[in-house]
Computed example of a mutant assay.
Amino acid sequence: MSQTVKAVIARAKGAPVEVVDIVVPDPGPGEAVVKIQACGVCHTDLHYREGGINDDFPFLLGHEAAGIVESVGEGVTEVAPGDYVVLNWRAVCGQCRACAKGKPWYCFATHNAQQKMTLADGDPDAGKELSPALGIGAFAEKTLVAAGQCTKVDPAAEPETAGLLGCGVMAGLGAAINTGNVGRGDSVAVIGCGGVGMASIVGSLLSGAHTIIAVDRDQRKLDQATELGATHTILAGADVDVVEKIREITGGHGADCVIDAVGRPETFTQAFQARDLAGTAVLVGVPTPDMTWEVPLLEVFGHGGAVKSSWYGDCLPSRDFPMLIDLYLQGRLPLDAFVTEKIGIGDVEAAFEKMHHGDVLRSVVMVD
């Protein structure tokens, strides 16, 4: 039987978010209903609200979440009611070309729940189908997802911390560990020290990097980056040549890996130019659809190395989430440092404003 629950939606482009009643159907084949305990407020949610992803309003926002599986549909074997899970937005198919090659983190046919959640009776748009952010929609008391979007982890990890692996923290960690292949003794530069950039710094430290350079325009973020493992910082500005500064710190060579956690043409150009010969430039910051990147082809040919994009940190949730939670519980991964504040379901709009001003790494919605 379907349920009516409270949730946060973006009804129209640029409009303030609203707390409304939505209808969550019973799970069908391959689906699960999850009772949400906590969900981080990510820049991607703000992009949805601003129409930066697509225009399929209304959006059911929220996607960095942890909670308890309440019920499952026919044929579900991955999880069972009562399981503690972190939600992910890449339920792999196991059958596509990438999966068949043993590279499921590149799955070309990831999927979400087939049924739609809708606005409840009494709403001006009652019955209208919702577009869940990244196929999740977790600023809600309960949500419907594909069962493959649920990854079981150790319940000893608090939901406000565990849920952050669902998007931004995993993207940053994976950009260093998986995409950038950062190794022992490497030098790494991270451009942009928001949540994703900070996670890239932590991932570089976990991977054994010797030199970790944090680049940002906000001294507060650089101070946090130092606490999380950065060995050097660069306060960017109009009069600062970031590329030259990175080269100076790395003996004139450039870094083995440069991670752009901003996602703008100018920052990715810096990443491309600041890497060592045969070094790697990684784009993990999300650009907008109108952005283009131009570089002389001879520079690509002459520089060598690799230019990569990192989609979700090239992670495989079933492999990476439990491992990272174990590292956290062992005291080796400082996930708690990413939780700036815990808020209520009605405080998402205020959290967006704090995010805009750079006042938080993550606000986390605690769902009663």
Rank of each mutant, 00 (worst) to 15 (best):
Gly82Cys: 07
Gly254Ala: 13
Thr161Ala: 04
Asp314Pro: 05
Val23Arg: 11
Leu297Glu: 13
Leu361Asn: 05
Asp56Cys: 11
Ser131Thr: 15
Gly148Pro: 00
Asp260Ser: 09
Thr77Asp: 14
Gly148Gln: 03
Arg217Leu: 15
Ala350Cys: 02
Gln95His: 15
Phe352Lys: 00
Asn181Pro: 00
Val242Pro: 00
Glu50Arg: 15
Pro124Ile: 10
Met366His: 01
Ala126Asp: 11
Thr292Phe: 11
Gly82Val: 11
Thr110Ala: 11
Asn88Asp: 12
Met117Asp: 05
Thr340Ala: 07
Tyr84Val: 09
Gly331Val: 12
Leu298Gly: 09
Thr211Gly: 05
Leu327Phe: 10
Leu283Pro: 01
Ala126Gly: 10
Arg332Ser: 13
His303Ile: 14
Val79Ser: 01
Ala176Asp: 02
Leu283Trp: 06
Val41Lys: 00
Val17Ala: 05
Gly195Leu: 00
Ile259Tyr: 08
Thr250Arg: 08
Ile177Met: 14
Asp216Asn: 08
Pro25Cys: 08
Asp290Leu: 10
Gln114Cys: 10
Asp359Arg: 14
Thr267Arg: 06
Leu297Ser: 15
Ala306Asp: 11
Ile325Val: 15
Ala98Thr: 07
Ala274Trp: 03
Leu222Ser: 02
Asp125Asn: 14
Gly285Ile: 04
Pro322Asn: 08
Ile177Tyr: 08
Ala162Asn: 05
Gly52Phe: 09
Val307His: 05
Thr267Phe: 08
Ile213Arg: 01
Lys221Ser: 04
Cys99Leu: 09
Thr269Met: 14
Pro265Thr: 04
Lys128Met: 14
Arg247Trp: 11
Ile343Arg: 04
Thr211Asn: 07
Val23Tyr: 06
Ser318Arg: 14
Val215Arg: 00
Ala274His: 04
Val364Met: 04
Ala157Trp: 02
Gln149Asp: 05
Met291Glu: 15
Val33Met: 04
Asp218Ser: 06
Lys152Ala: 13
Lys101Cys: 05
Arg97His: 11
Pro16Ser: 12
Pro322Cys: 06
Leu119Val: 07
Gly279Ala: 09
Leu277Tyr: 14
Pro287Glu: 09
Thr340Arg: 03
Val284Glu: 01
Gly302Asn: 15
Ser363Gln: 06
Gln115Ile: 02
Ile201Lys: 00
Met1Val: 03
Glu64Lys: 12
Ala156Asn: 09
Asp123Thr: 11
Pro155Leu: 01
His232Glu: 14
Glu74Gly: 10
Lys128Gln: 15
Met1Asn: 06
Tyr328Thr: 12
Ala171Asp: 13
Val76Cys: 03
His111Lys: 13
Val367Lys: 00
Ile345Asn: 05
Gln37Asn: 08
Val202Gly: 04
Gln273Ile: 01
Tyr328Leu: 09
Ala140Gly: 05
Ala281Gly: 12
Pro322Thr: 07
Ala176Ser: 15
Ala113Pro: 08
Leu164Asp: 04
Ala133Met: 12
His253Arg: 15
Ala214Pro: 00
Glu141His: 07
Ala12Phe: 00
Gly279Trp: 07
Val34Ser: 03
Ala147Pro: 03
Arg362Gly: 02
Val242His: 05
Ala120Gln: 10
Thr269Ser: 14
Val339Lys: 08
Gly203Asp: 00
Gly194Tyr: 08
Gly254Thr: 11
Gly251Arg: 11
Cys39Asn: 11
Arg220Lys: 13
Glu64His: 10
Ile212Glu: 05
Leu164Lys: 03
Gln37Trp: 10
Asp239Phe: 00
Ile136His: 09
Gly302Leu: 15
Asn178Ile: 07
Ala214His: 02
Thr269Pro: 02
